[in-house]
Simulated assay, not measured.
Amino acid sequence: MFTKVLIAEDFDSINIALIQTLESMGVKEIEHAKYCDDALLKAKKAIQDKAPFDLLICDLSFETDYRTVTLKSGEELITAIRQIQPSIPVLVYTVEDKSFVVKSLVEDLKVNAFVHKGRNSISQLKTAMETILFGGTFISQNLAHALKENSFNEIEDYDVQVLTHLSNGITIEEMEQLFKNKDIKPNSKSYIEKRISKLKDIFKAKTTIHLVSLSKDLGII
């Protein structure tokens, strides 16, 4: 079992539940942080002390308050810690349930487990940790379908920009000029229209407004 675990979670009630669960599983050292910046500092200190954490459990979203922070999300924290400790296993524990987010975390950030907070999340948390120990990847059953949705593989950074501009009320004509000014290519009106049409097919959206709405629901923009 893991011996030293770092938790990044901003709600006390969840922190308490996680700590109790880890203690029941025999984890000897548990540290937690309510801010991503603090979690990164703890990770750096542990490495400096030659006693690094062997598992990171983190949420994705953190509420803003009076404090100014550098790292504002779980994704940013994972990226920062992986830069100083590339091999640390990561277990994401969150209410987030958008397919695009799950797929991105597993395929791009290479997280080892994604547990959806819910009624059975504690038992899933235990299973996830055991799966990681044996070199596997765990995804909550209600979200496992995300990795099978091949259509998301067709979405490029260019498409995300198009969708973002559409959500901000920018017309295709305005987008064409904007892309030209920023030297983003292809930037012709006809190509942008073709990409929007393809995105409608991928998401099975009936209108551009419907396309934007679905993109937001899936966490793409």
Rank of each mutant, 00 (worst) to 15 (best):
A80M: 00
S87L: 06
S87P: 02
P89F: 03
P89Y: 06
V90L: 11
L91G: 10
Y93N: 15
T94K: 07
E96K: 08
K98I: 02
S99C: 03
S99D: 10
V101D: 02
K103I: 05
L105Y: 06
E107N: 14
V111G: 06
N112Q: 09
H116N: 13
K117I: 14
G118F: 11
K126C: 09
K126E: 11
T127G: 03
E130P: 01
L133I: 06
G135R: 01
T137H: 13
T137P: 00
T137I: 15
I139E: 02
S140C: 12
A146S: 15
K148L: 14
S151T: 10
N153K: 13
E156N: 08
E156F: 12
E156W: 04
D157W: 12
Y158K: 07
D159T: 09
V160P: 03
V160W: 08
Q161S: 08
Q161R: 13
V162C: 02
V162D: 03
L166N: 02
S167V: 06
S167A: 15
T171S: 15
I172Q: 09
E173M: 11
E174K: 15
M175L: 15
M175S: 01
F179M: 10
N181S: 09
N181R: 04
I184F: 05
K185L: 08
K185H: 07
